[in-house]
């Protein structure tokens, strides 16, 4: 979608939402790399299910990437660079540009959620709180993943979560969390800004 200047007679129409190219790049790389992390992660899961061990329930090949444990690991440890470095540069970008103050959940949003009466503003606050809250969840997935990838060098990460099984569970929980987030986030974006807002984030 192009954001050509609105003709004068339509000047009362709401402004077309605009995202920087960097935000769009982040959003795209995040979606694609997360999809690869999740599908290859489920392939790895199948080698020894977190719940039930070898006798546990396995994910069907439709949602796995890699074809076998080694293949799943290869995809996982390739996509991890895109996923983690994408978060890193984007974090630096929103910090340096101070976008985190304007484009992410703030105290004002929390106040709206508590005392606001405008349902549209409230929905917008929920939307902002939701996509802000997913960031620590993504970071947690990286930390728990690093703890399992190099548990000897980063033994303090495993210790932090108490046990190996706890670490595996927390790492795995990021999968359903991210899937549920993606559904609710898409729904909220449509509700708050319609297809114009959704399109602005992609194209």
């Amino acid at each position: 979608m192009t954001s050509s200047p609105a003709p004068a007679k339509r000047s009362k129409a709401p402004p077309v939402p605009h995202q920087t190219i960097l935000s769009k790049v982040f959003h795209w790389v995040n979606i694609v790399s997360l999809l690869m992390m999740i599908t290859s992660g489920l392939q790895i899961y199948n080698a020894n299910p977190v719940f039930g061990g070898r006798g546990g329930w396995h994910f069907p090949p439709l949602v796995t990437l890699g074809g076998w444990l080694g293949g799943g690991r290869h995809w996982h440890f390739a996509a991890m660079w895109f996923f983690a470095l994408n978060l890193l540069w984007y974090g630096l970008y929103i910090f340096v540009s101070r976008r985190w103050k304007r484009r992410f959940a703030s105290e004002a949003d929390l106040k709206v959620l508590q005392t606001g009466s405008n349902p549209k503003r409230k929905a917008y606050a929920w939307h902002r709180v939701l996509y802000t809250a997913v960031i620590p969840i993504l970071l947690l997935a990286i930390v728990t993943g690093l703890g399992m990838y190099k548990p000897a060098q980063f033994h303090w990460i495993v210790d932090l979560f108490g046990s190996w099984q706890a670490l595996r569970v927390v790492h795995f929980i990021s999968v359903p969390t991210v899937i549920i987030f993606s559904l609710v986030h898409s729904f909220m974006a449509l509700k708050v800004g319609g297809t114009k807002l959704v399109n602005s984030m992609f194209w």
Binding site: A47, N48, V50, L69, R73, M148, P151, A152, W164
Partner: peptide
């Protein structure tokens, strides 16, 4: 020590 298998168990 912790023995860690490539399959995911330890």
């Amino acid at each position: 020590i912790r023995h860690v298998c490539v399959e995911g168990w330890a």
